[in-house]
Design a protein around this nucleic acid. Sequence first.
RNA 1: GCCGAAGUGGCGGAAUGGCAGACGCAGCAGACUCAAAAUCUGCCGUGAGCAAUCACGUACGGGUUCAAGUCCCGUCUUCGGCACCA
Length: 802
Amino acid sequence: MGKYEFSAVESKWQKYWEVNKTFEASNKSEKPKFYALVEFPYPSGFGMHVGHIKAYSGLEVVSRKKRLQGYNVMFPIGFDAYGLPTENTAIKTGVHPRKVTDNNIIKFTSQLKRVGFSFDWSRVIDTTDEEYYKWTQWIFLKMFEKGLVFRDKTLVNYCPSCKVVLSNEDSQGGKCDVCHSDITHKTKEVWYLRITEYSDKLLEGLKDVDYLPNIKLQQENWIGKSTGAFVDFTIKENGEKLRIYTTRPDTLYGVTFMVIAPEHPVIEKYRDSIKNIDELDAYRKECSKKSEFERTQLVKDKTGVKIDGFTGINPVTGKEIPIYISDYVMMGYGTGAIMAVPAHDSRDYDFAKKFGIDIVQVIKGGDISKEAYTGDGEMINSDVLNGIDNKKDAIEKMLEVIKEKNCGEKGIQYKMKDWAFNRQRYWGEPIPIVHCPECGIVPVPYDELPLRLPPVDNFEPGSDGESPLAKIDEFVNCKCPKCGHDAKRETDTMPQWAGSSWYFLRYCDPKNTKEFASKEALEYWLPVDWYNGGMEHVTRHMIYSRFWHKFLYDIGEVPVSEPYAKRTAQGLILGPDGQKMSKTLGNVVDPNDVVDVYGADVLRVYVLFMGDYEQSAPWSENSVKGCKRFLDRVWGLQDMLVDGDDYRESFRSAFHKTIKKVSEDIDSLKFNTAIASLMALINDIYASGSITRGELRTFITLLNPFAPHITEEIYEQQNFGGVLNEQKWCEYSEELCNDDKIEIVVQVNGKVKSKMMIDTNQDKDSVIADALADSKIKELLDGKNIIKQIYVPNKLVNFVAK
RNA sequence: GCCGAAGUGGCGGAAUGGCAGACGCAGCAGACUCAAAAUCUGCCGUGAGCAAUCACGUACGGGUUCAAGUCCCGUCUUCGGCACCA
């Protein structure tokens, strides 16, 4: 065998797979189905980096193995192409976003094909294709029909740099998800999707799916369910009921003041009777100017103003207490009003200390002269609750009291907020809504979909946060679909997450022009058997798409309630410097460069071998060379071939063990140890100097999912018959994984002192006898008492001696 | 602050409570070569020793066990998520 010419071989097989439609999945098959899904890329102008390759390589290997195991595998790919970066490129270069997107998709496609991924290219989708976004709009209208779409004028997250309103999911940590600028707040009327209606379903659904534990936990925390009580306090001066939410109704006797959010409507309602209204207004104005960042920086330093003219009455104790406004209470959670229990809540404690308010302890424990006590303990100073010694019982008792007094009830709250569903930008799906002066908000009729994005030359957003579409009269001016009156179109577009919220459904039937996918296709493929992607999408795309899917399930459009049966996440590839790869740091590795120099198989093996698939690890060019060496040695196996379709005696257990190891490791994402076991095996083969044809065939079959090109080529060169990707995965027998003889260790007092060969499954007594006969052990035990003998079959013998 | 994950050679990382460091990289020595690259062989946690070997060693301090990287308690550090969520 000559040198392995990876470049020619790789393009040869890639062409073969393309011509023969090798990886196109059929919607009808005798075989069991397997739907493997990876997050489709956003086609940016920078092309892919090796992180994308790692993200796809995991399920790529799983898919190839599943096919060999006789499954009808669908492993699709597509492009999530609407979004700001493309639009910004268009603004900068003057090239239309359609053109930019098309170019980027061509670039991404060629990169993906060069790596030899077994994607089903007949199912490619592009979210900006009108045959696709037609259905994105269709689902939106279905939601509108069911009352899940609404407009509201409230305080929204706003990115001053991107000039768009952002959802809560898009502004995590107070930073814009796209450009990382600080978020500000402003009052604006925008579209919302009522995702909170699905809070409980999204939480409950997690019980039935196989997601990594940390993924479930992050979603649970994001949804943020808490149970507690709503309690109506009264404002003495005007009799107004002021409703609060608390998770600690057991501490109701410790309430010494109340706090309401600066935006609470009760202030406007009674502003004439508030004596220090000027002071309140000044404080409220100051709060609205603070950025998210400033607010979080000032956590310890509480600010606020006492409302002069309001006195709160505790409905349970009848006690009169002051009411403050402070920005540590937010309008967006609970009722925007709280009962403050400084003895047992650290925020209330800080506030009380600063404003000199009484602190009344109602739970025994801690030292409330120093800090709030948030632990459990016996109730004190609490009338009927006194003596109860745990939180759970105390809460129960208080809920009864509240019920008796008819001043509130048990309540549930979620941290998740409704989804601000809008972008004041051009490159997105137009929202199919018409504003009619007669009829109000009117949906575009289904048969008029898609509502096309008009071709324009100027995509600059307006400085006042207006969408570029607002400037296009032909688009804006229309007739009301209901009454025919002159009307205006909605000019906001959908956020970037819209198209990706249902793309996995379209893959099932991507060319359908009548439905987003046929019932038969959905019935056949759903749910996605295994979905892999990034951790950064767990509280964004994953939440959104589960919501859309559950909605479609509720209206009978999809057959299963959860879209993804299993979800895993890969770790990042860091730059060679150990930093996160980024253009500004200049440490981005382009997969094309690696393929040029080492070949696609090397790249594929390396990204999976570099470490634990779920952990981040830095790129190392030297380690890439190690993988290259490995594959060259695989090629070299052909020079040491001997006849024989079976495993040789001396290698039988090694092969069975390796088949078992590789099979199990692929299924549990442990690609690094799967490859390591193949490396260990090849080392042994080289040491022996020869390999049988049968052994070679097994070896290249096991390696095929990782390195499909070189293994196909060897398979062909050796005339094994047919092509490797149509063969069967290797079988192993548990029994044959064991050698006849096995080495065990002999310990004295827990320390290894000797090793010996025994027959596999040799009986206990004879093993111990052999161990005692060992000259070294004999010497060590001489003159000592054996107190205990421990025997672990096929592992060790341990003598405890004095 | 709360929640979660993790701390193992020079590096990436292996180890159902049972030989710590598999596999790979880097390094050192040798072979081949006029030479280099490539390739091949050997060594490669620390300390002592010519050696066989011995002692120590999985962030730190305790504990359980015949046996602990692995289990329990406490401490520290790093990373990730949430963050005034009442």
